[in-house]
Design a binder for these strands. Structure first.
Lengths: 256, 256
DNA sequence: AAGTGGTCTAGACCACACC
DNA sequence: GTGTGGTCTAGACCACTTT
């Protein structure tokens, strides 16, 4: 059964419910599930899909668009539309305080960083609050795209007081490695996780479509002394990352 | 400055970069940021926007569509398009094992459940693996929409062995309360968090647009004896929920 | 009945990839 | 150059809400 045959509109169009672009989207999803469209296979061109199904190209595009948003299909201008092969997901523990590069090395994945920003700056108001800095103090910033296994996984923007990280240029792979060499490795962190739709900029940096779901993570980490060591905002690809946490019963029950 | 004036195309169209629908989207975002479009205010009708800007209605719709996907605007057929007021986010701890209803009560929010499914069933293959059940054993399922403060927050689908929860109908608000009454409250859980784009069905249940980012959470919880007590898959609204975790340095460093 | 968003079409031109 | 996706238009009709 070829995809062309499978999309013969007599077999499905008008039989289900809902708008035609939804019906086509569902038919394409079935084709992917059933392997009629294998991973990395190319879809027929939009114009051909339109002719095959008797729909207009705009309607065809709307059906495909929903699959692109879900990450099931990638489109490349001038080249074609392709079924995306499910990329293996990586899990990160949410209870152990580890660094990205250490975490990936343990999995045997190679990491690479593309620097977006690295230097000493005047603190932004947000950084002043998060790090407890005065307006006359300075802040070390390192911002980079983290890649693992050849794929961009996250955008990481870290800010540290300059007396904790005086020379940001020393950081080549692991930030925590540099901090540890100074005896300044954080021992504790509070992390906040939210789901977001990636905006144009972040999506471009992570090589996915805008609107795809990602995880936004804000972390404040502390030295043993209780002082704030690091304030980091990261954006992870939702299709490549899971966070795993271990929970324990707090003392909330008692009284019985 | 009215929104009609603000959208005068001479002031912005063709001055920035990118496709026209992107330029219009940005202009609308600015209008919302600057308060020219207040929360809950209605946008001009699409046809009027098209005439105002000199763009076609299809292009106008595409610009608005991106804002709807981000959750910045809601559209109601037959009624209009409205600026969405940012809903306050709720944070849940990722280290303490608490239940949804207990958590919300502590915040003074009223909770409500709409039942989707509640009863005893044959276990699905996935449930057999997760709960360690044989094919001849049965499973108690409770699936519901959790609301807090009058808004749907999450879809929760829990499965438990029937000897831990023999009568699912006993659960009215807090599952953990029922388990605790039997001395079977879990003391430990492993939770996996991923970002997803909400599909049509989940989006409808949570009263948001399909494609908006949400958090998918899979939790397996354990009794003190080590036995699996509960396997739950939940989907949270990304715009209403943050998860907060406390991390600690594991013994990964040493050796120096 | 009038107004609004939702769907759909046919056709055009542009931007980019591949040969 | 040819083929692909990306953008855009003008106009139509449907479904739903509001009055």
């Amino acid at each position: 059964m070829t995809i062309t045959e499978f999309l013969n509109p007599q077999d499905w169009l008008g039989q289900g419910t809902g708008p035609r672009y939804v019906q086509l989207r569902r038919r394409l999803e079935e084709a992917i599930e059933q392997g009629i469209l294998a991973p990395n296979a190319s879809l027929p061109p939009e114009r051909e899909l339109a002719e095959l199904t008797g729909l207009s190209r705009v309607t065809v595009r709307k059906a495909i668009q929903e699959l692109v948003a879900k990450g099931a299909i990638v489109q490349r201008q001038g080249s074609g539309s392709f079924v995306r092969d499910a990329s293996p997901r990586v899990e990160q523990s949410l209870s152990a305080l580890t660094s990205f590069s250490e975490d990936m090395q343990r999995r045997g994945l190679e990491t690479r960083s593309t620097w977006l920003e690295r230097g000493v700056f005047m603190p932004s108001p947000e950084e002043m609050v998060a790090l407890g800095l005065g307006a006359d103090e300075s802040v070390a910033r390192i911002a980079r795209i983290r890649e693992a296994g050849g794929k961009p996984m996250a955008i990481e923007r870290a800010a540290l007081p300059t007396d904790i990280l005086s020379n940001p240029l020393l950081v080549t792979t692991s930030l925590y490695e540099v901090l540890e060499a100074e005896g300044l490795r954080p021992v504790r962190a509070i992390q906040k996780i939210s789901a977001i739709n990636l905006d144009e900029d972040d999506a471009a940096l992570l090589d996915v479509e805008p609107g795809v779901a990602g995880l936004s993570i804000q972390r404040t980490s502390y030295l043993a002394s209780g002082r704030v060591a690091e304030f980091t905002r990261s954006t992870y690809r939702g299709d490549a990352y899971d966070f795993v946490a271990e929970l324990r019963l707090s003392n909330a029950k008692d009284k019985r």
